[in-house]
Design a protein around this nucleic acid. Structure first.
Length: 239
DNA sequence: TTCCGGGCAT
DNA sequence: ATGCCAGGAA
């Protein structure tokens, strides 16, 4: 049983348990992009308040948002926290799209994924998770989003070592869909995968694990039994 | 590792 | 009151 095939089974188990997740909830790619920045380390309900503030002033349009002074933006996004950093990040993101793509998210989406990702990562305040979330949910690219929940699931189920890096978890998750050759279909899987991981993570894989009712407990027991078996063999060898 | 931060559940 | 959240930078 390879790590990739086990992860694929976890995905299928989550899909069966939770059903379609319909991510990312938004009315436009711009709103998705903004939400992706605002939700860093922040509950989604708080992000919704900020988005409502912007929508109420018709600011969820590119030109209007670009024209908004940073200090005003800061106040409108206050409910989602880290407002100074996030306001600066959003400004830089809007300027990237304005300067490199004429303010068109459609053109941004047509850029090679590697180019777009590098440009996003060059912005202070956008790290790998936010960059991949924007690539996937706002630009439609087949990017795998790795968050703390996925890292915990992968580590706790013995699919990777404790100090595993972002890129390694990402490669492992992509390997679970290696048979998918169509980019659009892969993007659909990436979309659903991350959404499902967030669901199971919030309910069962927080700071302290809560496995009793977890849909993935079967796989965990499999791993723990393997671990015990390895332990007994190790004892027989006296090491 | 620590800080950034308001909102919400407990 | 305390802990934690669809993270990232210094």
């Amino acid at each position: 049983m390879t790590a990739a095939s086990r992860l694929r089974t976890l995905y299928d188990t989550l899909a069966a348990a939770y059903g379609p997740q319909h991510w990312w909830p938004s009315e436009s790619p711009l709103e998705t992009m903004v939400g992706a920045c605002l939700t860093q380390g922040t509950a989604w309900t708080s992000v919704e308040r900020s988005l409502a503030n912007l929508r109420a002033r018709d600011l969820l349009q590119f030109d209007a948002l670009l024209a908004l002074p940073e200090d005003e933006l800061r106040e409108l996004i206050r409910p989602s926290g880290f407002m100074q950093r996030k306001a600066a990040t959003l400004r830089a993101l809007l300027e990237l799209v304005a300067n490199e793509y004429g303010g068109s998210l459609e053109r941004f989406a047509e850029a090679p994924a590697e180019t777009a990702r590098a440009q996003l990562l060059a912005i202070t305040g956008i790290g790998p998770e936010t960059a991949d979330a924007i690539l996937l949910y706002a630009l439609g690219q087949p990017a795998m989003v790795v968050d703390e929940y996925l890292r915990r699931v992968v580590v706790r189920h013995g699919l990777a070592p404790e100090r595993v890096r972002y890129a390694e978890v990402q490669q492992l998750a992509l390997a679970a869909f290696a048979e998918e050759t169509d980019p659009a279909a892969l993007a659909d899987h990436c979309n659903e995968f991350h959404a499902l991981v967030v669901q199971v993570g919030k309910a069962h894989c927080g700071r302290t694990p809560n496995c009793a009712q977890c849909p993935l407990r079967g796989d965990l027991e499999y791993y723990q039994q393997e671990q015990n078996r390895q332990g007994r063999l190790s004892d027989l060898r006296n090491d």
